[in-house]
Simulated scan of single mutants.
Amino acid sequence: MSLRIGTRGSALALAQAGTIADALGGELVVITSEGDTSTASLASLGGTGVFAKALRDALLAGEIDAVVHSFKDLPTTPTPGLSIAAVPRRADARDALCARDGRTLETLPAHARVGTGSPRRRAQVAERRPDLELVDIRGNVDTRLGRLDADDAERRLDAVILAVAGLERVGRADAITERIDIDVWPTAPAQGALAVETRTGDEKLVSRLDHRATRLTATAERGVLAELEAGCAAPVGAHSFIEDGMLFLTARVYAPDGSGHLTSSHATVLQKDAAEDLAARVAADLLADGAAELAPLG
């Protein structure tokens, strides 16, 4: 029997899981979550972890053998009985602006309407361009992009912000008008990375897809969230990379209204527990500087 790989039913989720199924010779099983059926805002649902629960429940029940997640959507608290068995090579971690008339963030006209459902992205836009109007949006990639050309003026947007990786995975990279520099605009911890989860003890089913560098950098970024005791919808950006045998990590906490931010950066040699130790140092700096007072982290 072929490996049963659980996924959400969106075009993006199917594209992501499809690459894993192709690599493993598995079959896709679509699981519907509360996040897929509710029209409430992401923040009110409890953040992006809402998408993971139904998949994990099916995995624990033995209905499927593995699950493919967007790693950035997973809560940092482990689920008993489950393990992240593989973190494949990461795609582009940057955010993308998709705007009418080929605009960039700097060239959008004053009072332009920008759509995003992410508290982090809202804070980043408000900090860079406080003159813009922010609109909370939900929906799949095509739904969000469709609002750029909506007939209804109330629904029409001048730009939306999405992940480069997601746009590329569903074949919509043509909609990107700006790939935003990650050094000045850190993205969600583990953005661009996938996580393949199995029941603990079944890791060998998918472990050959694991990419060590991606696992280390994603673990460092997500470790900051864990140390801050922050949810995956908190206004926190992080960027980690490996160079010359060193692991680097920068994290930034934003005031939700864009009125300011705190940043910490550290590096360490690659050794056992390097990602976890680095995350702890960065988070300790942020907390000492007042991150918990600047932004809602829970």
Rank of each mutant, 00 (worst) to 15 (best):
A292D: 15
T219L: 12
L167C: 05
G260N: 08
T268L: 14
R215N: 07
I20K: 07
V87S: 03
A153H: 11
D289P: 09
V164P: 02
G117F: 03
E243N: 14
V282E: 03
D181M: 01
G46A: 07
R90D: 11
M246T: 14
A291F: 03
A226N: 12
P186Q: 07
V114K: 03
E229S: 14
T214Y: 04
E227G: 09
L157A: 05
A230D: 06
L3E: 07
F71I: 09
D210V: 03
A91F: 12
S41F: 01
F71R: 13
K204S: 15
K53N: 12
L24S: 07
S118N: 03
D151Y: 08
L28M: 01
G260Y: 09
A21T: 00
A175D: 06
R89S: 13
G35R: 05
G46P: 02
S33E: 02
G171Y: 04
H261T: 12
G192C: 00
A188V: 07
H266S: 12
H111M: 10
L247I: 08
A233R: 13
V196L: 06
R8E: 15
A86I: 00
T250G: 12
H69Y: 09
S265Y: 11
L74M: 07
V253T: 05
L14Q: 15
G62H: 08
T32E: 13
R113N: 02
T198L: 02
V114G: 02
G81P: 02
V206A: 08
A251M: 09
R56D: 15
L74I: 00
T268C: 14
A233W: 15
A292Y: 09
T37R: 12
R4A: 11
R4L: 11
I242Y: 12
R144K: 15
V125W: 05
V164I: 10
H261N: 13
R129V: 03
